[in-house]
Design a protein around this nucleic acid. Structure first.
Lengths: 159, 159
DNA sequence: TATTGTTATACTCTATAACTATA
DNA sequence: TATAGTTATAGAGTATAACAATA
């Protein structure tokens, strides 16, 4: 999730409270709480449907994007799927160690590490993509098709 | 997020693919991808608004729920906010070490560890709750009030 | 100067599995 | 038998900060 290290060590804000605000505040209605719970459920479904691939949701997003784009620099790839450089370093390393991805230096710009899918990586990416819609379907199963479209459209707004 | 250890070490599914499915599959439209991104953004806003408290979103959900309910068993509390027992053990330990929560054995059932807010914990819970609506507001800022209500209602369905 | 990537460091969350204690 | 909790173990993701290399 989130910035655990971002929490700087500073003095706490004053502990004064508006009592009126407390009454109407219901944890379960807060968007952050709901997103966290939905995230847990979506991840769990991903794990079930993608069982056997040994690839995490974040790793999958990298493979899928790489499959869309062809060889792409590590940094850009991370930006496209929402992974910061330090995290991407670890993700790329794990995918490389698994033999799904192969790094090389960009001939045009020696700073860039190009990531490419290996043959095995391409196979895994395609097999997982073909199951991707099942993950989506099962995650959205509790709602109608129209509700699902609405949810997707609204979520896209806060991304 | 998710079940990293749930990925059992088994043989991969066959790497056969329906080519037609690949074309219509857009990573950025998948509910799981959107939820992960939304989760990142919501967490980041939480970190900004709650800066100074040194409390993570998960820890906050425990404090808020404890403030709602009064002393509650560790296990039940975890179930209510979506934290499994092993994770809850760590979360409770960190909150206890911080002096925000205090554990005790339930007199009625010696298996239960009751968690209670300390005085400081109550102050922090109330101060954070009073800021909770700001987190929600800023997270939902890109949409109208009605869209926000719709999103919350739909997310509640997949929780 | 700005960007890309690397590395060290650290912490939270997550989960499985095996275990003890209690009901 | 079932439930609550503990503990060991493991790994992913996240981020900060400092740094080197390149543009």
């Amino acid at each position: 999730m989130s910035a655990t290290k971002a929490r700087a060590k500073r003095q706490s804000p004053p502990l004064t409270v508006d009592p009126a605000a407390l009454k109407t505040y219901v944890l379960e209605d807060q968007i952050g709480f709901l997103i966290r719970r939905a995230h847990q459920r979506a991840s769990s479904i991903f794990d079930q449907v993608m069982d056997g691939f040994e690839v995490t949701p974040v790793q999958y997003s990298v493979l899928a994007k790489l499959h869309d784009l062809g060889p792409t620099s590590q940094n850009l790839l991370g930006r496209l799927v929402g992974i910061d450089p330090a995290t991407m370093f670890g993700v790329a390393g794990r995918l490389t160690k698994r033999g799904l991805v192969s790094p090389s230096v960009d001939p045009t710009d020696a700073r860039l590490v190009l990531l490419s899918l290996t043959d095995e990586g391409r196979g895994v990416a395609e097999a997982m993509k073909s199951r991707g819609s099942e993950v989506t379907a099962r995650t959205l199963e509790p709602m109608t098709a129209e509700e699902a479209r609405t949810l997707v459209a609204l979520l896209a707004k806060i991304t």
